Computed example of a mutant assay.
Amino acid sequence: METPRNSKYLMQLTLVATLGGLLFGYDTAVISGTVSALDSFFVLPFGLDEMSANSRLGFLVSSALIGCIIGGISGGYISKKIGRKKGLLLAAILFLCSALGSAMPELFMKPIGEGDHTFIYFFIVYRVIGGIGIGLASMLSPLYIAEIAPAKIRGKLVSLNQFAIIFGMLIVYFVNYYIAGQGDDTWLNTVGWRWMFASEIIPASLFLGFLLFVLDTPRSLVLKNEPKKALQVLEKVNGKLEAQKILSDIQNTVSHKSGKLFSFGIAVVVIGVLISVFQQFVGINVVLYYAPEIF
């Protein structure tokens, strides 16, 4: 298999984009280590009956999924309107805001650490913000890699994003385990859970910082009428001989209007949707969110 002219530069761009996937997994699974603490801190003080208390806790834990829907639906529009890179920057900012706000829902309203159960709705808002970041990253990270990678190794590089998602989940389980070991249950229910959410500040800051130093994808640059910049990126990744040809192909494809929704047949769309549906129907979210409680 042929390798691109500058494989090191290509791998750097890919690794930056996969940080979005890592944060996808990290933000999704970080809640698992905090379930009992959130129940103690936010839910029990309301004195609700068992059914109402369980429902409130369930909504508290899964509230990020509301943001995922918003981010997933708006991802296509955002990537086209402001570009792939800026879309990822927006996701990184949302991850950072969510990490700060989830750890300190009383931020800007009370001294840090003095918030109580009445800040539950602010906590939910911050989790939804993180969910929007997840929705954006779930689309834009693989899209960025696919548009930056040469065709011959595109599938292999895009698959790294899926690996990064699972790796992010794995990392946060160990992070949560380490933090939980720093004190007793009382400490975990009052302070420890805050540190679990705050730990996301580190990868989110790295993601945001690295994105400032990478270029947008060639296709995105062509869509913004910046063919010279697109050619520069293509030359770095593919070499000068291939760059001009690929640029011409991109310019030809973006000049055509998109076909109808079922241009390639309804089966393709239905199968693609059903893959995502069955990923949820297998019940994996139960394990992701409640693994510590189950075991």
Rank of each mutant, 00 (worst) to 15 (best):
M109N: 14
I120H: 07
F24C: 11
R194P: 03
V30R: 11
G115F: 08
Y290M: 07
S7C: 00
G131W: 07
I69K: 06
S276N: 15
R56W: 13
L100A: 15
V158S: 10
G183P: 09
N225F: 01
N285M: 06
F167L: 15
T217M: 03
E2N: 10
L13S: 05
D184S: 08
A29M: 13
N54C: 00
V16T: 13
G67W: 09
H117M: 04
L140W: 10
N285T: 06
K228V: 12
W195M: 12
Q280Y: 08
V273R: 02
E50K: 14
T186C: 00
K86M: 11
G83W: 09
Q12D: 02
L65G: 04
V268A: 12
A146T: 05
E50R: 14
L44D: 13
F123M: 07
S52V: 01
G20L: 09
R154E: 02
V128A: 02
A164M: 15
G20I: 09
I202Q: 05
N238H: 14
A146R: 07
D116V: 03
I271G: 00
A146H: 05
S98T: 09
I201R: 11
F213I: 05
L234D: 01
G58F: 07
G115V: 06
S74D: 03
S7N: 06
I153L: 10
C68G: 15
I120G: 03
V233P: 01
Y121N: 13
F59G: 01
L15M: 14
D39H: 14
